[in-house]
């Protein structure tokens, strides 16, 4: 029987869509405060460093970033098709490589914290 990678692709997409739906609006609101010059506690150096310094914090940050990237990359691939760009091989390669690069960068930056 032919094996399909659809369940994994879709599962990660759905997990990313769910975690971003619950978490991102409030986190973006906090970075908007920071952009306005009213940096909230979470985005001060001490707080964020303390959060990212323990393995649980690292795991949370890594999970959120990895799933957000995967979700966005997969949906962007579909969206490009919907906008009439039909070079799926190139588009898929580009978006997944960007997501993979972001994930690898996240991994190494977290290791250095």
């Amino acid at each position: 029987m032919a094996k399909s990678n659809k369940p994994i692709v879709w599962g990660l997409f759905a997990a990313g869509g769910t975690i971003t739906a619950f978490l991102l609006p409030v986190v973006v609101l906090l970075t908007l405060f920071a952009a306005l010059g009213m940096t909230p506690d979470l985005f001060t150096y001490e707080y964020l460093h303390a959060f990212a310094a323990n393995w649980l914090g690292k795991l949370v940050i890594f999970g959120v970033i990895f799933l957000s990237l995967w979700h966005a990359a997969h949906r962007l691939r579909i969206t490009m098709h919907d906008f009439g760009l039909r070079q799926d091989l190139w588009i898929a390669t580009t978006v997944y490589v960007l997501a993979a690069l972001g994930t690898i960068m996240t991994f190494f930056y977290l290791l250095r914290i």
Binding site: T20, L24, V28, T31, F43, Y45, L48, H49, A52, I61, I65, S68, L69, H71, A72, A73, R75, L76, I78, T79, D82, L98, G102, M105, T106, Y109, L110, R112, I113
Partner: peptide
């Protein structure tokens, strides 16, 4: 439908802002 799909561009871009923040933090 398209508005819903296009939200991924914002999520993609914002994730890289978070990665930039992590780099600075490191």
């Amino acid at each position: 439908y398209m508005a819903r799909e296009v939200t991924c561009i914002f999520i993609f871009a914002y994730t890289f802002l978070l990665i930039w923040a992590l780099r600075a933090l490191a």
